[in-house]
Design a protein around this nucleic acid. Structure first.
Length: 387
DNA sequence: CCCCCCCC
């Protein structure tokens, strides 16, 4: 068995491993240890576990333990620990699948030796490759990147027969909230762990995650070879933490900042929306300033919508009439009314304009027709000044 | 020897 200094002398960076090497030594930090996963196909059956490693140059490599190897190395390759790995086999990656390294992957053989070391792999250089949310937002859909951000909230896991997912919200210096979807064991394991830490607003390094743009909205998704680093130790993470602390010291709540989509939305008078003066398209976003006077449909925040044109239908004894399509018995569904975001104006209480007073009247008129909540609003005088 | 890149 080699001593630590012998191992250190033989150590090479991942990017300098000779072709077909079987005796190179690497010193790596474990940044991910996946769940033990069963597999079965026409040729083989068993279990595997994916490990993601990074060396001192910040170069990552994926390794897979199969079957008995999982048990053999169960007390090794633990997350956040550093190891020497000797006599591993370096295979070419299958170009059909994503990996953390373009060319090589690590496989374990009967000769492979793994030794834990207290000489920890420094992550200082690892920092260089991490992008901010703003930089990531400029990349095309499907891009794979390393992202540095602040965790602000963790939603519950959503599970169905075939998949598990969980959304978390992250932000950056500019308080730009972005949704990251965690899949599979990222949703389950990393997600549950982040849920416990979320009040501390930890810095996250999300490695090899994917840009996922849906309906024009920028988002991030994990892929099977992603890694989640919590409070990593390198300059970009330290800078972001300092930034977060300044923002918090100014008593700004980083969990409720407007998104970029909100900031980019065209501001219009509320009347223009109510009077249907704006071109309607599914992806267009508009915003307006107004005072919330009351909430009409507190109990039933949805309406019956025509399945063809999505406009509101009139339902009388199960038969729905769509005035827009001009059909008497249309298929319809419940549809929620969603304000994507509501933010309080920072500077001052908004001035009530004559136009907005008219808007209030319009709402009251509409409410009178249908909802129970109309009864509530009609009991009160509107809280709007006349002049 | 694995391998799902998904969802609203």
């Amino acid at each position: 068995m080699a001593t630590e200094s012998e191992l250190a002398n033989q150590t090479v960076p991942i990017n300098k491993i000779p072709k077909n090497s079987v005796d190179s030594v690497i010193r790596v930090l474990v940044i991910r240890r996946g769940s033990i996963t069963p597999y079965k196909n026409s040729r083989h059956e068993g279990t595997y576990r994916t490990i993601i490693l990074v060396d001192e140059e910040g170069i990552k490599i994926q390794a897979t333990l199969f079957n008995k190897q999982i048990e053999t190395w169960k007390d090794f390759l633990k997350p956040n620990k550093s190891y020497y790995i000797a006599k591993g086999r370096y295979d070419r990656v299958n170009p059909n699948y994503s990996s953390v390294h373009k060319e090589v992957e690590l496989a374990f053989t009967d000769n492979t030796v793994i030794t834990e070391t207290d000489h920890e792999v420094s992550t200082q250089k690892f920092s260089d490759g991490f992008l901010s949310l703003d930089a990531a937002d400029n990349l095309p859909n499907g891009s794979i990147l390393d992202l540095i951000c602040v965790l602000v909230s963790v939603n519950p896991i959503i599970q169905n027969a075939t998949s598990k997912r969980r959304e978390i919200v992250v932000t950056n210096e500019l308080m730009e909230p972005t949704i990251v979807t965690l899949w599979g064991d990222f949703a389950e394991n990393d997600g549950a762990f982040l849920d416990k830490l979320k009040d501390d607003k930890p810095i996250l390094g999300l490695c090899d995650v994917r840009v996922s743009i849906y309906k024009g909205r920028f988002g991030i998704s994990t892929i099977p070879v992603s890694s989640v680093l919590i409070n990593p130790i390198f300059q970009k993470a330290i800078d972001l933490r300092a930034c977060r602390e300044i923002i918090e010291a100014n008593n700004k709540d980083i969990t409720v900042a407007p998104t970029k989509a909100m900031r980019r939305a065209i501001e219009v008078p509320l009347d223009h929306i109510l009077d249907g003066l704006l071109p309607e398209s599914q992806d267009s976003m508009y915003k307006f300033k107004a005072t919330i006077v009351d909430i009409l449909n507190k109990d039933e925040p949805w309406y019956f919508s025509c399945k063809t044109c999505r406009k509101k239908v009139r339902v009388i004894e199960e038969a729905a009439t769509c005035a827009n399509c001009n059909i008497d018995n249309v298929e319809y569904a419940m549809r929620s009314l969603i304000a994507e975001e509501i933010h309080q104006l920072e500077d001052q209480a908004p001035v009530i304009l004559e136009e907005e007073v008219r808007s209030v009247r319009k709402y009251r008129k509409r409410a009178k027709k249908t909802t129970n909540a109309a009864a509530q609003i009609n009991q009160k005088k509107p809280k709007v000044a006349k002049d």
